[in-house]
Computed example of a mutant assay.
Amino acid sequence: MLLTEKEYVEWHENDTSHLARWLSASDHPAPARIVIVDDKTTADEAYRLACAGTSMLYRGDFHNARQLLQAVTRRVERTEKNSAKRKLKKAANKANNSTESGSKNLPNLFHQQRQTTAQRARILSRLLLELDIDYVSSLRRAPEVNKACIAAFGALDKEDESCVLSFRDLQGALGAAGWREKGVPIKELGVAIYPHYGVFAPTRHEYVQLLLDAPLPTVHDVAYDIGTGTGLLAIILAQRGIKQIIATDLNPRALTCAQDNFERQELANVQLQQADLFPTDAPLANLIVCNPPWLPAKPTSPLEYSVYDANSAMLKGFLQGVKSHLAQQGEVWLILSDLAEHLQLRSREALLAWIEEAGLTVKYRLDTQPKHGRSQDKTDPLYAARSSEITSLWCLQSV
């Protein structure tokens, strides 16, 4: 998130009313009920308050606050195992048996798991911290968080004396700062990509080899990277010798992140443009690449827009508009997982119909099987779908 419209949170402490700027990475509304907690607050008490919808502003020791959040997390996980996960596992057993009823249950299983994850996030976001205008904490043994918070949330306005945010959001900002410093190694390229806060990190990058293996169009002097994110696909195209690359994204954070990565790679042939899908005032492209969100579901936070695409809106919009931006004999490289098909959220027939309706045809397809941990975890309620997942590069061309 970037600080735009102001929202404030109010609480009473020591018979005094307090007001502070409210920050939320997930755009959650300011909490309505806040109580003061400290080092004496037990995990059971904190868990009870959080489940009841009460937020807790922590006073005391920073490390104790972190341990309290860890203890509440364990209680949430234990409750999930004893209640919600029983339902998920029951449904997962039906799905893993590959019966017709199990197959039909997969969409419900997926949505139940998302609801469980959302509920966990709400509970764990109830532990709050107050920081001053320079993002300094008054808690004992608090670390330096100023740079991480400015990178994540932007500088606070001078009229704001302090801000309040969830401990989890602060951890997210610190984690993002770590990724930004050390980078994500992309071994297939021999480079590292440096994600920024609010930009999806390419920790899953099995598709990189597909982009390296796909034969370039005969003419490949101009290429587009639609929805560039960190800029990874554009960097691959540059390494493969594309002379002019135009990378687009609607998210200002992504544009800043991609520019950072292009400068680190000393790329002078990549132009960035803020756009919803396709660039304007640009030459027709010989190659257009896109790695859209893979799952047709509604995002619940800004970061989830990189994973979830409600009603496949971006995918369909890309397919419907891409032909008008394509040069003669040009190609479209669509990077897409079939996980949505295994979850019964989208059919292969629907995808092929959208391609045909867009005036495109499939020239060839390259496939790879993901090797990430969740695809190997048999205890995952969605294991039946994840273990069958294939990531593909669909090479499309005009009919």
Rank of each mutant, 00 (worst) to 15 (best):
P31I: 01
A32N: 00
A32C: 01
R33F: 00
R33T: 05
I34D: 01
I36N: 00
V37S: 02
D39G: 00
D39S: 01
K40C: 00
T41S: 00
T41A: 00
A43G: 05
E45P: 05
Y47H: 13
R48E: 06
L49F: 10
L49V: 08
A50T: 11
C51N: 13
G53K: 04
T54V: 15
T54C: 15
L57T: 05
D61H: 15
D61S: 10
N64V: 11
A65E: 11
A65T: 09
A65C: 12
Q67P: 02
L68R: 04
L69T: 01
Q70A: 15
Q70M: 01
A71I: 05
R74V: 11
R74C: 05
R74T: 05
R75I: 12
R75A: 02
T79A: 09
N82G: 09
S83M: 06
S83F: 00
A84K: 12
A84G: 06
A84P: 08
K85M: 12
R86Q: 12
K89F: 15
K90S: 07
K90H: 10
A91L: 12
A92C: 13
A92V: 01
K94I: 06
E100W: 15
S103C: 06
S103V: 15
K104S: 10
K104E: 11
N105Q: 11
P107S: 07
N108E: 07
L109T: 12
H111G: 00
H111E: 14
R114N: 07
Q115C: 04
T117I: 12
T117D: 07
R122P: 01
R122N: 09
R122S: 13
R122C: 06
R122D: 14
R122T: 11
R122V: 06
I123W: 06
S125Q: 03
L129E: 10
L129H: 08
D132S: 13
I133G: 05
Y135L: 05
L139T: 11
L139D: 06
P143C: 08
P143K: 05
P143N: 07
P143G: 04
P143V: 11
E144L: 01
E144H: 04
V145M: 10
N146M: 08
K147W: 02
